[in-house]
Design a protein around this nucleic acid. Structure first.
Lengths: 230, 230
DNA sequence: AACGGGTTTAACCTTCCGTTAACCGGGCTT
DNA sequence: AAGCCCGGTTAACGGAAGGTTAAACCCGTT
């Protein structure tokens, strides 16, 4: 496996790196956040070991920025001295796949990296499609019937969730969670965003793809058969 | 998300299950290894929380056996009091995707489950079927004889209970509990909802599937299995 | 400081759904 | 066979959920 270690403490980095090298992994090092992020972006690693306390750019920021990059789903194992629950939650929130508290056993790091890499095989599709609606996850462009459509960040997130779940129903709760995470806005602004989303991807085309399931949520389906009237 | 909790300590199971339910997950329980494994194989969960110390079949065995099944890549989060390194390594060795030591924080469990499920997308649509009546749990759509039928949240809940229990009888109390939980409405509105449900899935098709058991409740059975002589 | 895109809040209105109550019919019970 | 529950049926009311719009707000840019 090819592993990137982002850790400012050179002793720890070397220690861990040596151990992993002995186990036939190929190891690269970065001693600060910025170069770590850069290496992570331009190379293809099987997994990344990321320390939280870093000079320059925080580990959380590194992880977030990495996740913002398209096609960067490299598994991240966070390594830190902080074992408070909030720290962990913040870690996962930023996109980490695992979180290990110092002091840690080298063997455990190896075991967890193996698990992460094993599952990293799964490839996320970089293109979603429902009926005549296409969503390119790399370029973040949306087309319907060939026509290009511009969307806000929130619109993109909503559409991504709806399309990747299609034809299943997505509850309001799930949608909200996918867009805002744990900290939801005070007021129910999902309604408004669904409205603006519809205004661009449904209204101009006559045939609506976004369907409301009263009391449940929404679902995105092609113009199937018509439901029987009550 | 659909989550299976395999844990013999009912308090812990209930505690964790309640928390996850509150976060809009659908939770199933198993209190020993054998039934846990069986449930895991027969159903499609998004993730499994697996306790190591189990009566009957050990948690490690459950995990190993599960991995031997074809197409059973359901993510497994191991939960245990043992924090020795060897225990963890054995856990990962048996095919676990994550390993958490008691005592654990509920929020952390949720966060880690979210990460696990993030990768593995479910493939098979979950469906209930009784006679010519089909209920797709994903799209929350109901079909009878191929015709699509739209139902309200309450209608869906009722039908879900009736179909998943079929051909057994379901008492009014059970139905009410499944729909409203502990806080039942003042008046007996179950009657009305059964009526509207029948109006949509029975009336138009001539042959009724919903049968009344006077003084007991209702049951959903195909036309051929209705007994004529009590 | 003014601008603009994007997001949140608030207010208003419509639609839909669930509860309730009242009435009716049919099957147990005595 | 009469009466009494239990369940079927219906319509009206009230309220919640969702649609729509506009204004306030935030933040980085000009």
């Amino acid at each position: 496996m090819r592993i990137l270690i982002i850790e400012d403490n050179r002793d720890i980095a070397a220690n861990l790196g040596d151990f992993l090298s002995d186990r036939d992994h190929e190891v690269d090092y970065a001693y600060d956040g910025v170069t770590g992020l850069h290496l992570a972006i331009v190379n293809e690693f099987d997994a990344i070991v990321l320390d939280l306390a870093l000079p320059g750019m925080d580990g959380l920021d590194v992880c977030r920025k990495l996740r913002e990059e398209v096609r960067k789903e490299t598994p991240v194992l966070m390594l830190t001295a902080r074992d408070q629950l909030d720290d962990k939650l913040a870690g996962f929130e930023s996109g980490a796949d695992d979180y290990l508290v110092k002091p840690f056993e080298l063997k455990e790091v190896d075991a967890r990296l193996a698990v992460l890499a094993r599952r990293g095989q799964r490839i996320k599709p970089r293109e979603l499609q429902v009926a005549d609606l296409e969503f390119n996850l790399e370029t973040l462009t949306v087309r319907r019937a060939g026509k290009r459509i511009d969307l806000n960040p929130i619109g993109l997130k909503l559409l991504e969730k709806l399309m990747s779940s299609s034809p299943a129903v997505v509850t309001r709760r799930e949608l909200e969670h996918h867009v805002w995470g744990e900290e939801l806005p005070d007021s129910d602004s999902l309604r408004v965003h669904i409205h603006t989303l519809r205004a661009v991807i449904d209204k101009p085309f006559g045939v609506p793809l976004i369907n409301t399931r009263h009391g449940i949520g929404y679902c995105l389906v092609g113009p199937d058969e018509v439901s029987t009237a009550p």
